[in-house]
Design a protein around this nucleic acid. Structure first.
Lengths: 146, 146
DNA sequence: AAAATATACTTGTTTATGCAAGGATTCCTT
DNA sequence: AAGGAATCCTTGCATAAACAAGTATATTTT
């Protein structure tokens, strides 16, 4: 079986990259359009806190598959914007606990609706079964490379 | 039909984002491991030039779906690293033409092999038909959001 | 030919990432 | 209890992205 020549634009890597970027850019623009001062990366963090408030930076990094420096600075930015608070752990001074603010709690529904809507836009007209297969392949890619 | 509650980690957006990032990070590490001074973004540019040398920044931006400032600075970096040259268009002084260097021409096979290998790693064990469906869905997402 | 418009590119600013290296605090070992 | 290791986080440095605004050159309009 002869292998096809490599063509960037037909490759899984390129298609993944472009689709992902379009998706995150679209979400960013949606947030902006609604005057929500929020990036998709910040949304990822908030999302984790909506599931469980008061997590450590470490946990947030692991859950979102980022390194700790990234999370550290992401959190700095989110604090500046009044989205979260950083509180020292009462027993262990190494640890910071990250909490939602009243503001970000209030915004949960709006943020979530916009995220869900963006995904619907992206998947518009895609057959349910094919979408499920695509998600399965993406999971497999993640397992393969992790 | 009741809509499922939004869960970040089950969402198309999250899975796309993580799979894409794992893929590009893996490629970056592969380049680094072989002492190839190259990022995946730079590889995207080179890839276009391997198909057709001497393109304008404009074309490269359009082909890679980036904006012009990004490409402008990406190219600055690639020139520093000796991967490409920027030459003024003989007739139209607004236009820069971007050319491969002897070095990057010589490296084409190595770079390409590594990119292809990374994609094979990522797709290891994925059924051919399912992969094709996934690629089709990714194309649809790109069309939907563009 | 001068003015207005369009095109190609660059610069400025903010946000985010990856990796390496550096604190501080806690835990473990002896 | 002291020394070393582990844990959690931050800082430094380089790369890249998005958007807005600016510059230079070419083209079109009047």
């Amino acid at each position: 079986m002869k292998k096809k020549a490599y063509r960037l634009e037909d490759s899984l890597g390129y298609k993944l990259f472009q689709a992902s970027r379009l998706m995150t850019n679209t979400l960013n623009r949606h947030f902006k359009k609604h005057n929500f001062l929020l990036t998709h990366e910040q949304w990822q963090i908030l999302s984790r806190l909506y599931e469980k408030d008061g997590q450590t930076q470490n946990e947030l990094a692991r859950l979102n598959e980022k390194d700790e420096p990234s999370v550290s600075r992401l959190i700095d930015n989110m604090i500046k914007r009044g989205l979260i608070d950083r509180k020292a752990h009462p027993q262990d001074k190494r640890i910071n606990l990250i909490y939602l603010t009243e503001y970000s709690k209030r915004m949960e529904k709006d943020y979530t609706a916009l995220a869900a809507q963006t995904i619907q836009e992206a998947a518009f007209g895609v057959d349910e079964k094919e979408l499920a297969i695509c998600l399965k392949v993406l999971d497999k890619v993640r397992v393969n490379l992790k």
